[in-house]
Each structure stands twice: as structure tokens, then as C-alpha cells.
Design a protein around this nucleic acid. Structure first.
Lengths: 246, 246
DNA sequence: CCCTGTTAGCGTCGAGCGGACGAGAAGGAG
DNA sequence: CTCCTTCTCGTCCGCTCGACGCTAACAGGG
């Protein structure tokens, strides 16, 4: 709540609640990761009304003195234990159809999070269970509220973001190989990419990846060890990494 | 407000208002156009508290049973007389810092609108005056609330949208010439574009412009009459129309 | 040791796109 | 007519990207 300026107190006393219809404001988190080669979203099974027994995006009410972004980060740490610095967080948009919550008028501000591969978190309050679910296997008709719509928006935003930002690295550990990054693109876009052209593109884009100068341990399938990289400082890709065949 | 299901009434009766902190929800409109060759935004001068005398984006409270998008469209017609079909409207995002409104906790959902060149509208309720202001001459420290932040987000979103969508045509009349479209890009991006390469690019992208088969009247500076086009059916540009020199 | 299978990384070729620019087409003013 | 304007088409060249060949560097089996 903002500070009240001198001289406005009388005016505030005349505040007419009918002119300021009350809303509840929530944050809903579209938490995305790539685990076991699948592009997945964190979903909870609700244990409270409304939509008890339905699956839903994690979320909750914004506190009276809490910034929207802060509420999202708090929820993120609550649900997954991920600190903000370890993931990428951006606002997805506001969803506020009058009928989206049967209890009362709720406007939900959705947030999109790219998280590295994490162990499945333990259920929080109000949730029966919580799990990473591959986005192409989500049962949309079992999703609570308008979360099918929110999830679809988040997935599409994520797919587009990989084209013109280096954010695919946000799905990987701090030190990563070119193949790690390629597997992120392949999982999120659902396509196979040529490893050689991908390597040329990624290593040739300044600011995308910084070499560590040390090789990664050999993977389970053998083969030549890959060089390790860290995320670079670029925030945009020029030119963009375009999805094939559109 | 959603319908209450059977069996939930008792539960609703136990509703604790402290668990659902009340917020006010508003829409703020970033109305953009190109007029007299300048990329401009519609701003009002406030005549009511708070921020009386400051300039602001047009906006207002969302009604209890009103969808967010519907509130934005209502505001659009109210402020400019533009019907939804004549302009492009998309949500920009939610802005909800706790201190953004000194009266109470307000979450504002900002909308971005691309409108064709319009006569300056008449002031609405609570506004002393209303005018199209070139975005590069806006006095940011005279803007109310966090509208400098909202406006900056809207302008940047608009500049990016022109790269990968055919929405530049939303700033033009229904029938337009390639030069009309080029002047939109030049005004929004603040750069000069080569008319010949622009022509090749625009006419060579399927679905961007559909030829009408009729020439436009000769402009004030003379020259060969340009062919008229209408907006095509494409929603994305492939490949994108990239800004020069980045 | 050699041979094989794996992945990593480099090189090459050709199609296509975009920036720089030339030149003709089609109008008006004088 | 000349001169100016803008519109439209065409050429050249460099860059990027898709397709794909080839070598480098590991592990494991014989």
C-alpha cells in the first residue's frame, strides 16, 4: 500500500467502496524444466476447494504489501526450493475472466519460470501431490480454473523465447556442454537438430556461451568428451535461432 | 464472479477476508499511433486525485463482472471512439508494485493498442485534456503512477512486434501503400529504411499485403502513384523484418 | 595392441536472404 | 519538352543456414 500524502486523508475518508470493486489477486506459476529429455511443467494435485482433486499450476494469493514479482519468487522458493538466481523468472500476463474462480472475482498474474533439472519437490500446503509432468502428456481437461489456457500461453512463450534469447541455458546447470543445450532445444521444440550446425551456430554467436576451458566427464554412451561452457552475457540472439521448417 | 457449486456454500460462508486481501484492479491503455510521421502515445492530463495535474495513460477501474479484455476495449472506445475491429489490442502485462497508487493497493493490467492515424479525441471524465504525444518528447518525470515504466514497456514491445508480425499495417488505413507501411517502420524504429529493399521484402513475404489492383492518388510531393494493398492474413513474418545495425 | 562404436568438433558446398545501389516507369510542375 | 518526385524492378555480393563429409578423442572388447 502506498503512503498517503498530507492533505489527502479527508479525501480517502470519503472513499466509496462501490467505486473500487474488490478483487483478489493471485500468482500462478508456469514452472518449466527439461528432465529425462522431456519438456515438463510442475503441477500439483489440489487438496482444497475449489477444484479439489484437479491438477493445477502452483500459486497463491498475493499479500497486501507484497510486490507481484516478490510474490512469484516467494512461491517459487516455497514450491521448489529454487532461489531466484538459479532460475529465470518473467511475467507471463494477467488472467482475469470473471468466471475463472467460483469463489469470488480473482485476477491471476501468471509467471513463467525456466528452471534447471531438479528433484521432484515435496507437496506444499493445500496440495495432495506435486510432480513434473511432460507438457505433451498433460490432461488438459483435468486442469483447474483456466490453467489449461495459462499453461498453453506459457509453453508457447517459452518456445518463442528460445528463438531469440539465450535462455535455453537457464534449463541447464551452471556448467553445460553444447549437447546439453541442444537437448534442451530438441525437448522444448520437439524436433531433432543437426548437432554440427547447432554447434556452429551456438559457438559462433558471441555472448551465448563462454568456454570454461575444461572438458566435461564422458557421458554414459561414451564418445569424445565435450568442452564445458557457462552462460554468456548476451540477452538477445542476433541473428535468431529459428525453428526449422515453418 | 463465478457460479457457486452445490456443496460449497458452507465453505464459502466461512470465507475469511484476511486470507483474500482486497485489491483494486484497473486497466491502463498504451494507445500508440503514427501521426504526422511521429510515433505517438495518447496521454491525458489528470484533473482528479491522485496525481492531479500530472499526465497519465488513459485507464480506469475494471467492473466487478467485466473481463479484463472487455474493460480495455470499453476504455478504448470511451477514450478514442475506435472500435475494436479498427485497431489491434493485446495485453502488455500487470503492474502491481505496492506503492504505485497512494490511495490503496492497485494492480493495473496494461494494454497495448495500435491505432491508425486519428483526430485528437475529446477529454473524458477526470481528464483536463487529452492529446497524442510523440513518444520521444514525453516528459517522463511528469507521468503519474508508474506510467513511465508502463509506457517504456509498451514502446519496446511495439518496436519488437514490428519485427516478427505484420502489425505495422494496424497503424495504417485499411487501404495502404508500401510507402505508408515503410513510414510506420521508420517512425516506430526511428531509422531510415531503403525504399527498394523494403519494397522487395514486403511484397515478397506471402500474406503480409494483398494487392487491391488499384493505384493510390498521387501524394503531395508528386511521383509515380503507388499500388494499393490491404492487410494480408499472415500473423507472423517469416523470416522476420529485422531492425538494422544491431 | 588394433578394431569398433560412440560423441565432439571442423570444413565444404550451395541455396536463399538481405544490404547497397543502378536504372527505368509513371506521375506533376514549369 | 525538361526536371523533379516517388515507385518498382533488377543486379551484385556477402552472410547465414541446411545438408553432409571428415577427423578427433574417448571407452570397451578381443
Amino acid at each position: 500500500m502506498g503512503r498517503v500524502r498530507k492533505g489527502e486523508r479527508e479525501w480517502l475518508a470519503a472513499y466509496d467502496p462501490r467505486a473500487f470493486p474488490p478483487f483478489a489477486v493471485t500468482v500462478d506459476m508456469v514452472l518449466l524444466t527439461v528432465t529425462e529429455g522431456r519438456f515438463s511443467v510442475l503441477l500439483v494435485e489440489r487438496d482444497t476447494h475449489p477444484f479439489r482433486g484437479f491438477i493445477a499450476l502452483p500459486g497463491g494469493f498475493v499479500q497486501p504489501d507484497e510486490d507481484l514479482d516478490a510474490a512469484a519468487v516467494r512461491r517459487l522458493e516455497l514450491e521448489t526450493g529454487v532461489r531466484r538466481s538459479a532460475a529465470y523468472v518473467e511475467q507471463l500476463g494477467a488472467f482475469g475472466a470473471p468466471s475463472r474462480d467460483p469463489r469470488m472475482r480473482v485476477v491471476s498474474v501468471a509467471y513463467l519460470v525456466f528452471a534447471p533439472d531438479l528433484p521432484a519437490p515435496r507437496p506444499g500446503a493445500g496440495a495432495r501431490s506435486v510432480a513434473w509432468v511432460p507438457v505433451d502428456t498433460v490432461q488438459r481437461d483435468r486442469l483447474a480454473f483456466d490453467h489449461a489456457h495459462v499453461l498453453a500461453a506459457g509453453v508457447e512463450r517459452a518456445r518463442a523465447k528460445l528463438e531469440y534469447t539465450p535462455l535455453a541455458a537457464a534449463f541447464c546447470d551452471e556448467e553445460l556442454t553444447v549437447a546439453d543445450l541442444r537437448r534442451v532445444y530438441e525437448a522444448v521444440w520437439g524436433v531433432a537438430l543437426d548437432p554440427r550446425n547447432f554447434h556452429r551456430k551456438v559457438t559462433g554467436t558471441p555472448g551465448f556461451l563462454d568456454p570454461v576451458g575444461r572438458p566435461a566427464p564422458v557421458g554414459p554412451e561414451g564418445g569424445r568428451p565435450a568442452a564445458l561452457y557457462r552462460r554468456g552475457r548476451a540477452t538477445q540472439l542476433h541473428p535468431a535461432m529459428l525453428r526449422p521448417s515453418r
